[in-house]
Nucleic acid binder design. Structure first.
Lengths: 351, 351
DNA sequence: CTGTTAGCGCATTCAA
DNA sequence: TTGAATGCGCTAACAG
């Protein structure tokens, strides 16, 4: 029945030893008699003692708090939830705990949570930054010698480690794939133009189109929210064009799902009458649309790598983190054999 | 250029006052001269001072750490991610921060993270328990006077507040709805039998079936993982029955999505040739399958309510939390006009 | 209104 | 091997 707060002195008293001895037992020091250690641990269990990391951390000059902060821009998005899970895995395994906050793309909130985390003495930070995050937002952290790794989105001038997917090459490969299948009118659907990720992917799209001697048509680039609803909207606008596409590569899987919904609503079967490729790997993408080709970036793996990167920096005690960019491998998982020519696409068309 | 760690004495020295004065400024005390307060805050900003909550908390006898722990059984599931987001909202607004951990349904890990959270001095805990969680797992917390609220799943003998959805009535209503549409062979798909949630929902299903004079057929109760893959599997087994169902209510939305996939794979259009109802509210359920009827329980709202419940207990300083059960309202959002009789099911569509 | 003193729970010297 | 001091950064009492 451990009621109130039990401290080392309490258990020292009860075990008939001094506080220091208890402290040594706590950190598994080999300098303590096995018999006394057993007695101490027994008393600890009996009295319901709980280690006070705050106090310990305070004494150790605030070095390692064993807590790492994780801030994501949208936990509602399966991708970022998986990312957080990946981080959590290695963080927990390393004996750390995770301070997780969701910013909902809100810069003010992001500032708040990061400040709050600093007050709690995080020993490192992993952040999937909100749109518009500037290097100055991360500056105080690195100035204080707190390791920071940025994931998913890059922050322009920040001197921190980062891990992002190879957006350009991923989209480049996707477009080449579609062209190889015979498609010539290929749309790029979804995403916000003011993000670096969008521009990188768009550039991959454009480069691939240009490399295949396809006439660039800006009307085929349709930005929309990076969500299912956005995809639904985007495909609708695409199909409404005078010269609609026969294939599309989507900003992410959520958009691709929405595009599937939209195609079905228009009486077009995705993967059969229309080729679709999605970027990113939201939960269980393969069962969502069996015929959907995806460029996969494993969010959990990304989270794990980010965490490993951070832990390495923490243990290295490196004050200023170098700017390391780790590319994630992109792979086309399934082949999508959609017909390409206008003749085959004309059948049940719903212009 | 705030380099090393700046403390109150540093800023006191720089501002030409004493530590206490700085402390008073920190907590916004009205007992300090406006001029000195301005000077102190200016120096704080200049030196890049960061408040050390650990030390403050230590001095205050470990009362309020301003951190609340959140443990969920599966952050990969959109429902729980949304739940965490809901919690985060009110927690952040109240000036607290969230310690979030994912247990992946692992009891050992759950014990670990809860222990870790205690060491860090959480002032409250919200937990969506892993399968098999026993009251004894929460006992130490309540014994230590730490408020705990259990969400989503109940823990049998635990003397803690809890917030769960009205599983029985939700499923009861769903079945009645399908019966009203003319269905008689109604399956119950997905979920694990060893959870209280499953049994409650199953009981609702059975009670509704019995109330409608429908012969109970245990073959129509098909358990499977509460995931998209599980739903895909379950519907496959259902359709393979000698006397297959014409409608189904699913354990959750993920299962329902999987069931949709399975139906389509079998050439059956969900919401047209087969009526489907999903429980729970995963992200953007409405766009996933336009015709899918859902029993909705808003996970974010649930998270918010859980957090409010917890904060109330924290502020009330209530040592032993009473067992409060808060029901969540369940609503059928859309009507699903699926044909019921075998005769109409063979025609393309029936009025 | 501001300065002084004294710990919060722990780990780290130093002696014994 | 173990016990007695000391201080981490901060707040809570009282003094001035």
């Amino acid at each position: 029945m451990g009621n109130g707060r039990v401290t080392v002195v309490d258990i020292a008293k009860a075990a008939g030893v001094s506080k220091s001895t208890v402290s040594l037992v706590l950190q598994g020091s080999p300098l303590v008699n096995e018999a006394t250690r057993a007695k101490v641990t027994a008393v600890m269990r009996e009295l319901g003692y709980v280690y006070n990391r705050g106090a310990a951390n305070l004494r150790q000059s605030g070095a390692n708090s064993k807590i790492i902060g994780v801030v994501v821009n949208d936990l509602t998005n399966g991708f970022f939830a998986e990312l957080a899970v990946g981080v959590d895995m290695v963080v927990q395994s390393a004996g750390f705990v995770q301070f997780l906050a969701n910013t909902s793309e809100n810069l003010d909130r992001q500032r708040e949570v990061i400040a709050s985390m600093r007050e709690h003495g995080i020993s490192g930070l992993i952040v999937s930054p909100a749109r518009g995050t500037k290097a100055s937002d991360l500056k105080p952290l690195v100035a204080a010698g707190i390791p920071v790794v940025v994931a998913v989105r890059q922050v322009p001038g920040a001197k921190v480690s980062s891990i992002v997917s190879d957006n350009h090459d991923g989209l480049f490969a996707a477009v080449r794939h579609l062209v190889a299948l015979g498609h010539r009118r290929i749309a790029f659907l979804g995403g916000f133009r003011d993000t670096a990720v969008f521009m990188e992917r768009l550039q991959g799209y454009r480069d691939a189109m240009a490399g295949c001697d396809l006439t660039p048509d800006e009307a085929l680039v349709i930005d929309a929210g990076p969500s299912r609803a956005g995809g639904f909207d985007a495909i609708g606008r695409a199909l409404a064009l005078a010269d609609p596409p026969t294939a599309a590569v989507c900003f992410n899987d959520a958009v691709a799902f929405g595009a599937c919904d939209g195609l079905r609503a228009a009486g077009i079967e995705p993967g059969k009458d229309f080729a679709l490729i999605g970027f990113d790997d939201v939960i269980e993408a393969k069962t969502a649309v069996p015929a959907l080709t995806t460029i996969s970036v494993d969010p959990q793996g990304m989270g794990r790598r980010a965490a490993q990167l951070l832990l390495k920096q923490i243990s290295a005690g490196k004050p200023e983190a170098e700017a390391i960019v780790a590319s994630v491998r992109l792979v086309v998982r399934e082949s999508c054999g959609a017909p390409a020519t206008p003749e085959t696409a004309q059948a049940p068309q719903a212009g």
